[in-house]
Design a protein around this nucleic acid. Sequence first.
DNA 1: CATTTCCTAGAAAACGTTTACATTTGCATC
DNA 2: GATGCAAATGTAAACGTTTTCTAGGAAATG
Lengths: 340, 340
Amino acid sequence: MDIEDGGAKLVDVARLANCSPATVSRVLNGNPKVNEVVRDRVVRATRELGYVPNGSARALRSTRTRLVGAIIPTLDHTIYATMVDALQARLSEKDVSLIINTSGYDINLEYEQARLLVERGVESVVLVGSTHLPATLAMLEQKRIDYVYTYTSRAPESGAAVGFDNEKAGRTAARYLLDLGHSRFGMIAGITQDNDRAAGRRDGFLNELERSGMERAKVPVVEGAYRLDDGRRCMQRLMEEGTRPTAVFCGSDILAAGAIKYCHAAGIAVPGEVSIVGFDNLEIAELTSPELTTLEVPARDMGRIAADYILASPSQRLHLRRRELAIRLIVRETTAPVRR
Amino acid sequence: MDIEDGGAKLVDVARLANCSPATVSRVLNGNPKVNEVVRDRVVRATRELGYVPNGSARALRSTRTRLVGAIIPTLDHTIYATMVDALQARLSEKDVSLIINTSGYDINLEYEQARLLVERGVESVVLVGSTHLPATLAMLEQKRIDYVYTYTSRAPESGAAVGFDNEKAGRTAARYLLDLGHSRFGMIAGITQDNDRAAGRRDGFLNELERSGMERAKVPVVEGAYRLDDGRRCMQRLMEEGTRPTAVFCGSDILAAGAIKYCHAAGIAVPGEVSIVGFDNLEIAELTSPELTTLEVPARDMGRIAADYILASPSQRLHLRRRELAIRLIVRETTAPVRR
DNA sequence: CATTTCCTAGAAAACGTTTACATTTGCATC
DNA sequence: GATGCAAATGTAAACGTTTTCTAGGAAATG
């Protein structure tokens, strides 16, 4: 009986507790119909042997893995890291484990990772945005794995969405700047290729401007990756090419922070000569000087609510699908009425 | 043959490819000794059925899960998120999945999470720091699961460490400030309870000052959580109580950023009246004004190297254990020679 | 006291793979 | 032409649980 080696198994516990494996299994799974004294023997034996159940065997037999997968663009961007943090925290309260994968904004890579997740037997998948390979969704549906979109309110046919309306958020930024009297705009968007959120924000911004009589084509839009340097470079292009805007909307606080840094270096007053609005409300929004006016993305809430959806029973879920969260405008110091 | 339902199984593939399950298994696992034409039939059948192997069954039979676990304090702190990002990226190249857990700096919670990871059958565990419950390590060792410490160079008896020497880093900060001529110091440390890294930095800092003749007890040390607000509050205490220091070392860039904000608000010149050194070299170090002098933590490298260790064969591993990375001092604008 | 009911616990059959071992086949060798 | 060998494939027994079904008593009922 060399239990030392691989570790004790269920039968070892059964033997020590002087009962059948079935009974041990019942105790472990909280099955109520087992005598108290027997239950006690089992619990004691379990502890004595340091028994840890074999999850694979358990999953194989019961067809329940208690595993959830998440595929996000990157963990380097706080906005995603925070969502995952909240998601994991909530899931682990219920002993559900989270496998995380980063796709680097590449939907083909995302497909491969989804495949691996399916193979692992995840019961749900958290995805970011609504742009995915049809094959990815088809695979999940075929395997009866439900998935949740985040950072968007555009819900899939069959599935859930916990997020916000990026287009509306873009409109909000435009509305705010218009109300400050601005009439010459620019935008630094995230890379919109395969990124519905970045594209949505841009479209909303331009739509609202158009509705107020601006000519869409005359609003310069440059795209950059979510890095300080790109923000700097993009701002430079905006300020040096064509007529200089007095108000710039950035698709991320990082881009905005870079833009502010450029202005400092170039001697352009913020918000005196140009107003800047960011997006995300990261911690850095309080660190730029002047402090950054921005739109708050409820990353933590999304993670928590996505977890709640996943943990809910099928009947509860019906109410939880399609949850649209509000985006708040946080006014700080980088915006001001246009100078006459 | 209702394959539609649960999805095709290995036997279904075998039937369609007109061979035995064993052969299908061999093809799937890249076993070389299978005829090319048969292999081709199998591959075709696999694709046609959209077959995805059952990971649980596979893991149960082969005793290999290709699963790795990581338990970190939080994903909200960029320094950890970045490490995990790199770790995951490297692991997924080899089709190894990463389960992540956050412990919120609580080593009891860490134990529970380690337990769950063991149950899931992870083959390795990545831990942060060297302070863990003995029970946690005992469990891992008993189950023959190897673990890797990160953010520290203090390696466990049986196990690996990829990180840096926190004590030495603290000494570096002290040395640098001493060389600038400072003689009145203060420190804003992270919470040192159950946190060997925070404690190590503090000790190193104080040790080096002591070696230069300072009286250890006369150096005020306040602790704060890694949040802007705490940095602000701690700096206030440091500047208002006792004799005012001319040089402050902070256990994190976040704390340093808060400290700088306090100085702005209080009208204290940085670095004119007080020099500030941070720790981590986060993106925010470039966003404070003045820009923050700090020590760079190689988060991405740690993640990558930890992954390399995990993926290495047992024989290769011997060389990879105990990897100490260098900490670089990044001089920016928050430090200056002491004013006479 | 016989019969039913209820509850607990055991026996044994799954779950979908991998793999040790056995078998077949084709070839080369003597 | 028999024999041996290697390579390719098949057979069947695991892997460690959960769960269905059945059995054994004890308690309740008539």
